[in-house]
Amino acid sequence: MISVIMSLFNEKKIWIEQAIESILNQTYSDFEFIIVIDNPDLSNDIKKYLLTTSKNDKRIKIIYNEKNIGLAKSLNKGIDISIGKYIARMDADDISLPDRLEKELLFMEKTNSDLVSAYKINIDENGNYLFKDSIMNRNINKTLKYTNIIVHPLVLVKSDVIKKMGGYRELVNSEDLDLWLRMVEQGYKISILNEYLLKYRLRANSASIERQLEQYYVSKYINKLSKERKKMNGEDSFSVKNMNIYLDDKNFSKRKKKKFYLSNIEIKKSLDYFMSNKYLKFSIHIIKAFIFSPSYTIEKIFNQISIKRMGNL
């Protein structure tokens, strides 16, 4: 059995309906569907829909949080009550393709992996097609040091493994990257299925100016913890207090947030032009990115070169 776990916070009703229906209509049907409501002020419309749907399908289990506790804690609550041999992640604004669970489970058994993910099709807020992620041959263990290539809402993981790892830690974001790195360090096998199995909704507010710089520093903090574990026999200094001390020491001024955001846009544009062999436009946007944030642009270029070198490892 698979335990599908989804946390719900501020998603639109139509998105929630599409997400839930995409799981209920899977070709693989031996699952429980644990939905954690992390929003005490959820609209009555959505509550009514969830109540009706759960009555009609006994595979659904709903947990209501008395207050907002965040994604990591909400997922851990679902993990704690799960009874499946495997745990699958799902987000309340995405759409799983009908054979997602079946294909991931077969791939996990075939490759003897502890965790598998796949590739996503990106859609906009209205469900319109935007683009597909590029399928690339990369050394997962080494690439995770530079970028998170595991699509979180596509993850299928062995239940005993994630429970042994203690689940997700209470980071302000990127709690999934922290878990993947800890798993790799413990010798667990992570694999990616080269198929598109999810429609991933890109929301206008999910990559805001406010969040991008914070996510960057949290990922740096996560890598710092990883280095500590390698020196301290698997132990690190993580605590919510220590994380906040680390972040409080960073410059989160509005000016820096905006420059970081603009630099990110230019870097993404430059990479698109590079992949299309449009080197003049690539150069123009890299220069713009450098003007906005020199150190971050150099770091991103270095990371991309490192990832490319590892492509055939």
Rank of each mutant, 00 (worst) to 15 (best):
I2Q: 00
S7N: 07
S7L: 10
S7I: 08
S7V: 03
I14V: 15
I16Q: 00
Q18I: 03
I20C: 05
I23E: 15
N25K: 06
N25W: 07
S29Q: 15
F31D: 14
I35E: 01
V36H: 10
I37R: 14
D38A: 14
P40K: 09
D41P: 10
D41A: 11
S43C: 12
K47C: 07
L50S: 01
T53E: 09
S54E: 12
S54C: 08
K55M: 11
N56D: 11
D57M: 12
K58R: 08
I60M: 07
K61F: 05
K67Y: 10
N68F: 02
L71V: 10
S74G: 07
S74Q: 09
K77V: 00
K77W: 04
K77S: 09
I81C: 05
R89P: 02
M90F: 12
D91A: 02
A92I: 08
L97M: 11
R100F: 13
L101V: 07
E102S: 05
L106V: 07
K110I: 04
S113T: 15
S113Q: 04
S113F: 14
S113A: 13
S113C: 01
V116M: 09
A118T: 06
K120C: 04
G127D: 04
N128C: 01
Y129M: 03
D133P: 11
D133M: 06
I135P: 03
N137V: 00
T143Y: 06
I150T: 01
I150G: 07
V151E: 09
V151Y: 02
H152P: 05
P153I: 04
V157Y: 02
V157M: 08
S159L: 08
D160I: 05
V161S: 14
G166D: 14
G167R: 11
G167F: 09
G167V: 07
E170L: 09
E175D: 13
D178S: 05
L179G: 13
M183D: 14
G187A: 13
G187D: 14
S191W: 08
L193W: 01
Y196T: 06
L197Q: 03
L198H: 11
Y200T: 00
R201G: 01
S206C: 04
I209K: 10
E210C: 04
E214H: 11
I222S: 08
I222R: 06
I222L: 05
L225E: 09
S226W: 09
G234L: 02
E235Y: 12
D236T: 06
K241A: 02
N242C: 11
M243A: 00
M243E: 13
N244D: 15
L247E: 11
K258H: 12
L262P: 02
N264P: 08
K269M: 05
S276A: 04
K278Y: 15
S283P: 05
S283C: 08
F290L: 12
I298Y: 15
F302S: 13
F302P: 06
N303C: 11
I305G: 04
S306A: 04
G311M: 08
N312E: 15
